[in-house]
Design a protein around this nucleic acid. Structure first.
Lengths: 206, 206
DNA sequence: CAATATTTCAAACGACTGATTGAATCATAC
DNA sequence: GTATGATTCAATCAGTCGTTTGAAATATTG
């Protein structure tokens, strides 16, 4: 990994995280990175491959740490039931850890999910981890029907993506200090309550 | 409101909702709407103003219905405490209602929030309603510190935006029938549990 | 019908997009 | 020291972007 490649990846990670993929041009990236335009295509091939490289560089270690933590928790549990808070912890703690060193990547991840324009990237880099965690959620919440479980994981991803993307648009949070690990703690507690909630009755009219 | 204007707004609502604002070009909109390119600028002024018009057209009635529902619930409660489920119902039921007639707008709303590139639009059209609901959430959850409450509302918006944006990327939900009102019921139950959850201890190390 | 106002149209504007080229520069190895 | 490969560079490609223009077409009014 040359210095040029790292400068490109760092800048792409930051700018795409802040502005989105479609709204960020290669020329803006290379200008702020201080490299030549052709270097992007020489090292990465295309704009889409650049995003892929930026994601895989950071997502790989995070997902490995998630799986490792889940392995540990599942081993401790043996045949018994899993605790939903432990599963959530396995999922969010590695993200909080990497965030302590670098706030930019988690915003890129939020964009990836929110923008939703690159399902193949989500598929390639996050789906295997998601599969493992879906199984863990099932074990932690065996009374939840499969479809309800999938939706609740979907809600979790949405809340996470929006939370990681940037400062809140709510008046009181705009100028709050950006303490993302604390944010993740709050999110985790909120999601824990959500996962434990009773299922909505279908078609209730009040 | 001429037929041309409606065709433009309908198509913009659909395409921007599906693809995002930056990724959708005016030429794609006018091609699918079957109108001339200049008509967009003649009727709306600019691309940004077009988005604004598409939002205000549908968001206005939804937010009015939300406020009306909240008025009713608050009147019934008198001086007493509000029920969080009632407040959530005031917020989500008008959205579910409009969704039963038109699924496109709620996806556009999701995009607006997710893309986060137009804080001024969110500010202009959603902030007044949000202010009323923040006060209601405070009354329903008086034991929650202000900052925690703001974050939980933020999580709610994120889960909502992601859920409204489109089909889930989770394997089991990709080909599920798109029953958005049912989706909203599930989301509401999930959020109810989240809002009631105990607050996370700060900096817990497990 | 004539006159006025509103709306539509094809054409073009300059700026910007992602991508490509071939020569220049650098590093490494013989 | 020179040959070889890897990397950087300015210049340019064809295409698209949002926006503007002025003339044609349509609708409205007197």
């Amino acid at each position: 990994m040359t210095e040029t490649q790292e400068k490109i990846l760092d800048t792409a990670e930051r700018l795409i995280g802040e502005q989105g993929y479609a709204a960020t041009s290669l020329r803006q990236i290379i200008a702020e990175a201080g490299v030549n335009l052709a270097a992007v295509h020489y090292h990465f091939g295309s704009k889409e491959d650049l995003l892929d490289a930026a994601v895989v560089r950071k997502a790989g270690p995070v997902n490995e740490a998630r799986i490792a933590a889940l392995d540990r928790v599942e081993q401790e549990a043996g045949e018994g039931q899993l605790d939903i808070d432990d599963v959530l912890d396995c999922f969010f703690r590695p993200m909080a850890d990497v965030t302590r060193r670098n706030q930019k990547f988690v915003r890129l991840m939020g964009r990836i999910y929110s923008e939703g324009l690159m399902p193949q990237i989500v598929q390639k880099h996050f789906q295997p981890t998601m599969g493992r965690f879906l199984a863990a959620f099932r074990r932690a919440l065996p009374e939840l029907p499969e479809e309800e479980l999938l939706w609740r994981v979907h809600f979790m991803v949405g809340a996470m993506a929006h939370t990681m993307c940037g400062p809140s648009s709510l008046p009181g949070l705009m100028d709050a200090p950006v303490d993302i690990p604390r944010r993740i703690e709050r999110l985790q507690a909120f999601l824990s309550g959500g996962f434990r909630a009773p299922i909505a009755a279908a078609g209730e009219k009040k």
